[in-house]
């Protein structure tokens, strides 16, 4: 019954889903620009120590707050350090910490959300009220509370960011799961007698993954902002390690006379966040997810 049209169907076969999604993302201007920005930033973060023109610690008393010139392309800061060097190295900590914390946040928030969406009942009722309560608090308050309690440093920041940024993921994963749980193939799996874990793994996970991927990209950009804000406030990276947030904080006193030390880290941070957002947008469109429904936190 199918041999004629089958050839047509077979050519659109399946292992290429990931490839086709990436192609789809790249085919949109927003996806192409976004992905280019993100990849450029990640490569810079990885390899900047190799090709940074100066030592990021090296001070030069003869070139304090000097404007951009042939030697220091982006000028120098109040201690005479090269801003280009510090900017291309300033994202390393932020990208490293958030690149580890984001998958952790999506993993724990996603798993709990899928479970609650499937199980429902009283546990779901209670936990979701707790989630609501957490989301009602300003994030900076929660973060500062953790840092005051456990101190700063990467080993505290990663679990802290992963914990707090996993909470909104619970909502997204639960909502996506509830849409799927109502469908007959989940009912069929229940009727066959599959366990909850097996239903989560086999029926739900693949269908919620799209929403989680887009959500993960969004969480990543929010997390970068949060990390940089903490550095700005002096709770993130400690000097002399170069960091965008720290650089902005240091240079704000000289804004009136020497604005260039602040420009470079601001542009670097914004371009990365814009890149992530553009990629997330294109990814959502390629996967057919309505970003308008996603919660913003």
């Amino acid at each position: 019954m199918s041999d004629g049209p089958a050839t047509l169907v077979a050519t659109t076969a399946r292992p290429s889903r990931i490839v086709s999604v990436i192609c789809e993302v790249l085919s949109r201007p927003s996806g192409f620009i976004g992905l280019f920005l993100v990849i450029a930033h990640v490569l810079l973060a990885l390899f900047s120590p190799i090709f940074a023109p100066f030592d990021f610690k090296a001070m030069n008393a003869n070139a304090i707050l000097s404007p951009p010139d042939a030697t220091h392309w982006l000028g120098t800061d109040q201690l005479g350090r090269d801003i280009l060097t510090r900017t291309i190295m300033g994202g390393r900590q932020a990208i490293l910490v958030t690149a580890i914390a984001t998958p952790l946040a999506v993993a724990w928030g996603g798993l709990l959300g899928i479970y609650l969406g499937l199980a429902g009942g009283r546990l779901d009722d209670i936990l979701m009220r707790v989630v609501d309560a957490f989301l009602a608090l300003p994030w900076i308050l929660k973060m500062l509370l953790m840092i005051v309690t456990f101190g700063t440093g990467v080993s505290v920041l990663i679990p802290t960011l992963a914990f707090f940024y996993g909470i909104p993921v619970i909502r997204i994963a639960r909502a996506a799961t509830q849409n799927i749980v109502a469908r007959d193939f989940v009912l069929a799996a229940r009727a066959r007698g599959h366990s909850r874990v097996s239903i989560m793994r086999k029926e739900l996970f693949g269908n919620v993954l799209d929403a989680l991927m887009v959500e993960g990209a969004m969480r990543w950009s929010w997390m970068l902002l949060a990390f940089t804000s903490l550095s700005f406030l002096g709770f993130g990276v400690s000097p002399p390690t170069p960091d965008w947030g720290l650089m902005i904080a240091d240079s704000r006193n000289f804004m009136a006379i020497a604005p260039w030390p602040a420009f470079a880290p601001v542009i670097a941070l914004s371009s990365l966040i814009i890149g992530i957002n553009l990629t997330a947008d294109a990814l959502a469109k390629a996967l057919g997810i309505d970003r308008a429904q996603a919660a913003v936190h």
Binding site: R183, D184, F185, A188, R192
Partner: peptide, 22 residues
């Protein structure tokens, strides 16, 4: 398990009853 196996259900709309990702 035996009772579960012996009673099987077929749904109205196969678009809904088959997991699109499988």
């Amino acid at each position: 398990p035996e009772q579960l196996r012996e009673i099987q259900l077929i749904f109205q709309n196969p678009d809904e009853s088959l997991n699109p990702r499988h």
